[in-house]
Structures are given as C-alpha cells and as structure tokens.
Design a protein around this nucleic acid. Structure first.
Lengths: 382, 382
DNA sequence: GACAGTTACATCAGGCATGAAGTAAGTAGG
DNA sequence: CCTACTTACTTCATGCCTGATGTAACTGTC
C-alpha cells in the first residue's frame, strides 16, 4: 500500500502548475525533507514522467534545476456517472483536463448493458478527441456508496439493480487498462485534496439530485467502516417534517435540500420543471420561487453541516454538485455555518464551492487512477 | 514520532490481560506480521518490561514461549481533573489500576496555585498508596480543549483564567518525570482504543457537568485542526429553544443535555440539588422529575449523535461521564441513534458506556504517559 | 523410531523515509 | 581573485517494517 497516497500525484501537480519548479520548492511546499523529494523526483524522472528542463535563476546560490512534467507520457480517462448523463473527460498526467463532454446514459437498465453502453461511449469520445500519448487508465465516479476494495456498488439508492454489482471487473472486461472506481463525492474530495496543500482535513458536499459527501482527514480519504462515511442526506431536520424519504425514514435532509426535493417542491407550487438542472436555470433566471427554494436548501444543509463542522473541525468545507452552481446556495450554507458553529471552528475555515466546479468528479477520478498508474510505472522501472 | 501510537501499549495490554500469551497470539490479534511482533517483543524484553515465563502447551508443534508483563517495572500516576474534584489513580505498566481516590480541587483559582495544590495532593496520595516499583510518569486529563503540542489550555470554558496556561511545564516543575496532558474526553477515547481491538474508529462522549467528546479514527486519536475536534456541546437543538449558553450563542445542546443544565432545570422545578452527582443520585432513587430529565438529556444527545454517526460511520459510540452512570440515559441515547441513523450505519455499531466507567479518564491519561515512557525505555536500551 | 506435518519463533535482506553530511554552483564584498 | 556566505541538490548511514526463509521443537502415524 502506498503510505502517502497521492504523494507522487501531488508532486506532479505542483510542478505542472508551477507552484514548485525545483526540488527545493517541492520540499518546502510538501513539508518533506529534501532527501525524500530528491529520491522521489529521481524515480519520476527515470520513469519518464518528469523531465529536467534547464536551470532557474540564482538567488545567491546554486541555480535550481527546473522540473517539468512530460505531458506526452500519456493520459487517463475519467468519468462521472450521473442520474441521466455521464460526464467524460481526459486528463494528462499533470492533472490537466484535456477534453470534456457530457453524454446521455441511462443507469436504470441492467448493469451489464449500462457498462457496455458506457464503454462504447468512452471509445467514441476517445476516438474523436485524439488525445496525445497513450491511454494509461480509466477512473469512474458513481453516485452512491462503492466498496473500493471489492470494486462493487454497495447501496445503490439511486441505482436500482446495482447492489453488489462488480463494476470494476465489468469495466476491465471492456478496457485492458487499470480501472479505478469510487463514490463521486469521495472523488471530488480526493481531487480537491491533491490540488491543495497537503495534510488538510476537508469535507466536500456534493449537492446534486441527491446529497453525498466525501471526507479527507489529514490528507487521507476516509471511507468509514462500511464505506458509507459522509452520509448526511438522511439526517433528520425539523423543516422536513414528516416527508417520506427513499431511505424508508421520514424527515430526512434529502427530502428538503436535494435537487430531487427542489424539483418536487416547485412542481407542487405549479412550476413546470423536471430536473435539477432546470431548477438551477430557473433560479438563475430570477424566478422567485426557485431562488427561495435553492436558498432554503442551502440553509438546511448548512444547519446539518454545522454539527459536522463543530465536531470534525475541518480546514475546508467545499460544495459541489449542481446546486453549488448557485451563489445564493453557497451564501446560504456559509451563513448557516457562521451562525451556528463555534467561532473557534470557523475562524480559519474556508467555505467555498469546489475548485473545479462540474469537473470536480473528473479530476478526482483521474487522480485515483493516476495514483495507481504512477505506482506501477515506478515499480516497473526498477 | 511513533508511527503506531500506543502500539507497544496495546501489546502489553494484550499480554497483561491474557488476550495473547505468545508472540504468535500477538501477531494474530494485532494483525501484524510475526517478524514485527518478534522484534517489538524482543525490544520490550530487553527493556525489562516484558519477561518470558516458561512455555505453554503444544497444539501439535513447538511450544510457545509464554510472555508476561513485569509489573514491578514501575507505575505511573494518572489524574482526571473535574470541576470540583480530581480523581487520582496509579496504573502499573500493564494498564492495571492499582489505586484510586478522589480529592477536592478548586480549579477556579490561579492556575499556578491550583497546580501546586494538585502536586501536593498527588504526593500525599503517592505516599499513602506505596505502589510497587518506581514512578515513571504522570498523565493528566483536563476538562476542556488542550493544545497537546504546546502543553497548554486552549479554550477554558469551564476553567476561567486558564487560557494559554502552560500546564505541562508547570507540572514538570513539580515532578521530575515525563508529564503528558490532554483533554479528558480525548483520553477516555484513547483508553478505550488501547483496550480494544486495533484500528477501530470510535467516538467517546463524556457527558458530565459539560459535554465533550473524543474521537479515534482508524486507531489514531484525531484532535482536529484547532485541537477542538469532537465538540458537539454547542450544536443547536430545537428542544433548547432560546436558552443562552456559556458560549454566547443560544439553543445549544449543552443547555439541555449537560449535567449543569439538568441541575438548573431541576432547581427550576423546585428540586433542591446542587451538583451533577446529586442529579444522578436523585434519579437513581426514582425521583420522577430527575429520571425524566436524565432520559430527555439522553434523547437530545442521541439526536445530535445521529448526525455524527451517519457522517462518521464509527465502529463504536461510547458514553462516559457522570450521566453515563444511568442506564436510562444510555438507553435513551441508544434509542435515538437506532431510530435516526441509517441501518447501514448502526448495523454493527456498538453503543455502550465506557468500559472503565468513572475511571475511563485515568486509563487514558495513563496510556498517554506510558506511551512516552516505553518509547523512552526502548530508545535508551539501544 | 523415521517421517510427515504443525506450530512457534528468529533472522535476514529489501524497501522506504529521513537526518546528517557532503558536493556543486552560484553571489557579494573586500 | 579570494573568502565567506547562500542555495540546491546528492549521497550515505540509519532505523523501521516486513515478506521470505530458516530453525527449533513438538505431535502423531505407519
């Protein structure tokens, strides 16, 4: 097991985004000893991933050897499976998104067929896009709990018929490449974690059609005992009253603060909409009912998050998913958190939308496979 | 830094309590390779902590060399500072509590004076108790956030005048021994963690005069960014309405579910009591108002914990502090959790009172110092 | 009582991270 | 140009954990 997961990945990310151009820089930013950085850097260089590209300017001493990522090394495919669509993208090894598309995908069919359809779509997209270098792997984010060890879907509340389905193996039959799967919110959290400073504790809440969340504790993705950590959608909130929830219980957060709930609420009020995307568009257009509903959803979510923030004392709370596209939603969450949390817990707390917006899941899925790919690349060059 | 904190401690605990008597046993129980256990065992033996004591019976092969702890190696002092009293105990290196007393201690005076008074008390108790072996260290649990790195009190809501006070240094001036300090709930969690199977994620809630909680994530104590992780006392609960709280906010859990809140509530109802202990005694006597109040406190706490349990997906939720002495309280928490959590989160969840009851903090404080002591002992014998 | 099978433990070599020391290559001031 | 100081990177020895292999010791069986 890689003891510092995403360690190499973060190193590459820093180099690629010029947050660090020399070994010294890396040591400083990563908080690792220079010796360690030197060794890792060397490994990545001889694996062909990093290259030395000239020298930097001196600041009174030896000139640093500038590092850069060889983007021609290859790319991975990443996919974020939604309720009706898949978002598919290619990322180079530096973590740059080369290409994104969204394609329809109906997950309410036989898993085997869905996977086949998905595989075809990916192949089509790949053929069109013609990304440089070889394909190195594929990472997929699913909307629901995933048993990462077994590569199966655990509790498919949003994917009926998928319980226990061995997605990873099914995907491997279509692609002769490393395949990595995980829950979408987890992957958004992973993506954010890799892109930011190391060792943080952060919470990503994906508020889309459903509500999910991913948790990174001191730099490591925390999946919980049953792999269902981060579930806040079925917390009971007063405002939800007795509304029945898909989980069988009543009064869950999901019944008032999810995209699905907003659709239902607005339809009750006579607004003609069918999807979370439409809710957001309508709110953006300034429709008062829609705007109010989105704002209220943010308040509800914020109240629940307050408990979690007081308790878990994270460095960042990041909002993803369709609802996070609304500034009003983000503001409502912020407001609720600042009001309800201990000052000590919010004093240096960053509350924001996810850095990569709708592509957050793709970055995470890419990061997950890339981690495997680099481990493999280094191991084989030895 | 010890990378597996409490690793040696757990090993000793297992041997002392005969959960493992041979190296093979240890490897099985700890989930570590035999080679690793062999090495660690050898280190502890040459440090004089463990001894080989004969051979066990064969089960068809070579006889195991039986291990046992040399309790004569020494002992540590542990203290759990409360609002009016200190509980002081001695633990041998196997983690057995040799001696306990409770002495009055007024923490509402000058910290320096309090520490001096405390030091005297410990010396008195030590003189009376005459524990075998030498004194190896002293661990102290405080009721409030502690900055463990600096050895200072962070946010002394229950200890006015202690903000930023360097307790550890102050204690070291009185005792020429290793001194370790931490928050009381954290230490209860640490104690439980050491005494049980490794690698668990568990949450200890200390419901006494105030409410605090300690969190162990996959075997490691998690203290959070500002060292204030585990704060659930200032979560807003509907039942608390607009009651003002010591934190400056209104409607906090602490205003309805803490010992202090129960005292206030019952006094309003005309019951003549002054302390959490009296509330518990009165409830135990079957006084209906007191019983109802305690039960309601459990329900309130349980509702808040439900969010945390859904979110954090722990293996165990353990209740400590004075309130946990009541079976009705524990039952109320259990009920609320089972009702409000996802089945997946509670399916294998253990909800119970802390194993060591009122001594839980002492076991944890002992564990904290012992960890340091063993590290030192092994390092020096090399 | 030789042999196979089992159980328990020790030892060793390899991998990985890292503190310390060494080397390389510059700047700046006299 | 020489010296002192900086900065950047390498190399090495050490420590820790661990998989693999070796050794010890015992049971049971034909």
């Amino acid at each position: 097991m890689a003891q510092d997961p995403a360690g190499l990945l973060r190193l590459l990310w820093l180099v690629a985004h010029e947050h660090a151009v020399s070994r010294m820089d890396l040591a400083r930013v990563l908080g690792l000893p220079q010796s360690t950085v030197s060794v890792r850097t060397q490994a990545l260089i001889s694996a062909g991933v990093l290259v030395e590209s000239g020298e930097g300017s001196s600041a009174g001493g030896r000139r640093p050897k500038l590092l850069s990522v060889d983007a021609g090394f290859g790319h991975v495919w990443a996919a974020d499976v939604g309720s009706r669509h898949v978002r598919i993208g290619a990322l180079d090894i530096a973590g740059n998104l080369l290409h994104v598309t969204e394609r329809p995908l109906d997950i309410n069919r036989e898993p085997v067929q869905v996977v086949a359809a998905f595989a075809n779509t990916v192949r089509e997209v790949a053929a069109e896009a013609r990304c440089p270098g070889r394909q190195l792997g594929i990472g997929v984010a699913f909307p629901g709990p995933v048993d990462v060890g077994a590569g199966t879907i655990t509790l498919p509340s949003r994917m009926p018929g998928w319980r226990g389905f061995t997605v990873r193996d099914a995907l491997r039959e279509h692609f002769d490449l490393p395949v990595a799967v995980d829950n979408d919110a987890n992957l958004q959290a992973l993506g954010e974690s890799v892109a930011g400073p190391p060792g943080r504790t952060l919470l990503v809440v994906k508020a889309g059609t459903g509500i999910g969340s991913g948790l990174v504790v001191t730099g490591r993705l925390y999946r919980g005992r049953a792999g269902v950590a981060g579930d806040i959608s079925h917390v009971r909130v007063p405002a939800a009253g007795d509304r029945p929830c898909t989980c069988g219980n009543r009064g869950c957060l999901e019944t008032v603060a999810s995209g699905a709930a907003l659709v239902a609420q607005l339809r009750e009020q006579g607004v003609d909409i069918n999807s979370t995307a439409q809710v957001m568009a309508t709110a953006e257009d300034g429709h008062p009912d829609a705007t109010t509903a989105v704002r209220r959803a943010g308040l509800q979510l914020g109240e629940v998050l307050a408990t979690v923030v007081n308790f878990g004392n994270p460095d960042e709370v990041l909002l993803g998913g369709a609802l996070s596209g609304s500034e009003a939603f983000v503001a409502a969450v912020r407001g609720a958190l600042y009001e309800r949390c201990l000052p000590l817990a919010t004093r240096e707390l960053r509350i924001d939308r996810v850095r990569f917006g709708p592509d957050a899941g793709l970055y995470g899925a890419g990061a997950l496979v890339l981690d495997e790919v680099f481990d493999e690349a280094i191991r084989s060059r030895r």
